[in-house]
Design a protein around this nucleic acid. Structure first.
Lengths: 108, 108
DNA sequence: TTCGATGATCGACGATCATCGAACAGTGAC
DNA sequence: GTCACTGTTCGATGATCGTCGATCATCGAA
């Protein structure tokens, strides 16, 4: 166990260890940007299975891992299910305004 | 010639044709992010030769092309010399706050 | 016209990436 | 225990990327 009681293979990095370029790389991919935008909608948390995109399950898992490593999203396991959410406040502390600006630019 | 009297092999895209993901991809590389930060410093315009980084000349040309295609920088040819500058106001019109936020996040 | 300088373009290379199906590991239900 | 379900991990494959040296096109100067 890393820092908290986290989910399976994950491991969430401390935001201070995350580089800006890592975050930008994570966001610079259409599918991942779409996931982040989806998670930013009201409701906050999203069940894994509710993220339905035209990609294989293993591909989605791969993208979520990249978003996790970039400190953008958080995994929470509840029983056999998994929930994903944005690390909005923490990202705001590390990279002020970044997430909000990117999301705002996305749907202008 | 594309739209304006532009420089050599370049061709600057209209900002409305540039996708957000393209901009993020362009910024998601250490060398290019460094170039953009360099161009954002007081003085605005930079002579090609004054951009000295530990990379080959052809590599720099390649990175500047990517930044150009992303609408981030502009090339101006004067005789045999070339000057590079940020398209700050135009980027602000297309992606409000993005450039400023990213640059601010870079050197916190 | 010939020369030197400048910056773009051209392969080529190794590395990284997005994608997939298959196999694996953890959980709750039976 | 066994089964079904869920999400991760493992290769593998084809595409893209960053990098380089070499070549090319353009310009001012001699």
């Amino acid at each position: 166990m890393g820092a908290k009681g986290v989910s399976k293979g994950a491991g969430h990095p401390a935001l201070c260890d995350v580089e800006l370029v890592t975050v930008l790389s994570a966001l610079a991919e259409p599918t991942r940007l779409r996931i982040v935008a989806m998670l930013s909608e009201p409701g906050g948390e999203r069940a894994w299975k509710d993220i339905d995109l035209p990609i294989a399950q293993s591909t989605l898992s791969h993208h979520l891992k990249i978003l996790r490593n970039a400190g953008l999203v958080r995994n929470r396991t509840e029983g056999t299910r998994c929930f994903v959410s944005l690390r909005e406040e923490e990202m705001e502390g590390r990279f002020p305004g970044l997430l909000e600006t990117v999301l705002h630019c996305r749907d202008r």
